[in-house]
Amino acid sequence: MAKRNVNEMSFLDHLEDLRWHLIRCTVAVLIFGIVAFCFPYVLFDLIIFAPTEMNFQTYEWLCYMSQSLGINDTTFCADRLPFDMQSRQVGSQFSARIWTSIYAGFIIAFPYIIYQLWKFISPGLKPNERKYSRGFIIVSSLLFFIGVLFGYYVITPLTINFLANESISDRIFNDFDFGSVISVVRSSSLASGLMFQLPIVIYFLTKVGLVTPKILKKYRKFALVIVLIISAVITPPDLTSQVIVAVPILILYQVSIFISRIVVRNQNKKERKAKA
């Protein structure tokens, strides 16, 4: 059936269109999730549990940096992280395998999900707006994967290393439930990937007039405080780790201001041409 003009579609037609886009996204996530489910060794041993080993690239780099600065007494140079993992419930491993596969499916299918989102909103845009937004899928996907890698290689190992070495008494040995370790890896990577979508979100908020460069500049100090608080919460309580996490977020915020400025400038040019 031919696709109807967006102006001729009713509210229920839009809902029906959205439903099919969501169904396609769900199918894509399930397909990639099933693929991930079929390769548990790659998914868990090589990816999920890699940050729990001291030969992980981030620990080796941080150990090298610490020794270069003359800091030899650091947890980044230890032989192993001081904890073991165990499963306390009968079905916990199977459940973790399913949910982790779904997370992996969502991450892998993200470009297609963005594509479906674009297919839903693009009919409502003007031809010139669609022209200037052709790179939306590529840029959004690139930012997402950069964010996922940042969460996986930076936030995750810093968090695991700190929590594993945190001790209130020598009488207590860390024997973590494996599900909590998986949760740290999944949430850190996915949350970071979504956080890196900030420039894209600011772009569309500026397009609809909800955000301006002046507003972003006005609340930049508050954003700085919020970023530092977030960095302090999700990283160990040392200045180096907090800076490593905070700097990329602040850069993203500054890039968002730049993008917002460009959008407003282009809109002003169009308004002046329309009046001329």
Rank of each mutant, 00 (worst) to 15 (best):
S133E: 12
S133G: 13
S133H: 05
S133V: 02
R134V: 14
R134D: 03
R134P: 00
R134I: 15
G135M: 02
G135V: 07
F136C: 07
I137P: 01
I137F: 05
I137Q: 03
I138T: 09
I138D: 01
V139W: 08
V139Q: 08
V139S: 10
V139C: 07
S140H: 06
S140R: 06
S141G: 07
L142S: 15
L143P: 06
L143V: 06
F144D: 04
F144T: 07
F145L: 13
I146L: 14
I146E: 06
I146M: 14
I146Y: 09
G147W: 10
G147A: 12
V148I: 14
V148C: 13
V148K: 02
V148L: 13
L149C: 06
L149E: 07
F150D: 05
G151Q: 03
Y152W: 10
Y152I: 09
Y152G: 06
Y153L: 08
Y153C: 08
V154D: 09
I155D: 02
I155T: 12
I155V: 12
P157G: 10
P157F: 08
P157D: 12
P157E: 13
L158Y: 15
L158V: 00
L158F: 15
L158Q: 12
L158N: 05
T159Q: 11
T159E: 01
I160R: 00
N161P: 01
F162H: 10
F162C: 05
F162D: 05
F162G: 06
F162Q: 04
L163E: 07
L163Y: 12
L163I: 08
A164W: 02
A164V: 00
A164G: 10
A164Y: 00
N165W: 11
E166S: 13
E166W: 12
S167W: 01
S167K: 14
I168S: 09
S169N: 12
R171G: 00
R171I: 13
I172G: 02
I172Q: 10
F173A: 00
F173Q: 10
F173T: 02
N174F: 13
N174G: 12
N174R: 15
D175M: 14
D175A: 13
D175Q: 14
F176H: 01
D177N: 13
D177P: 00
F178G: 06
G179N: 13
G179V: 02
G179M: 05
G179T: 11
G179Q: 06
G179W: 04
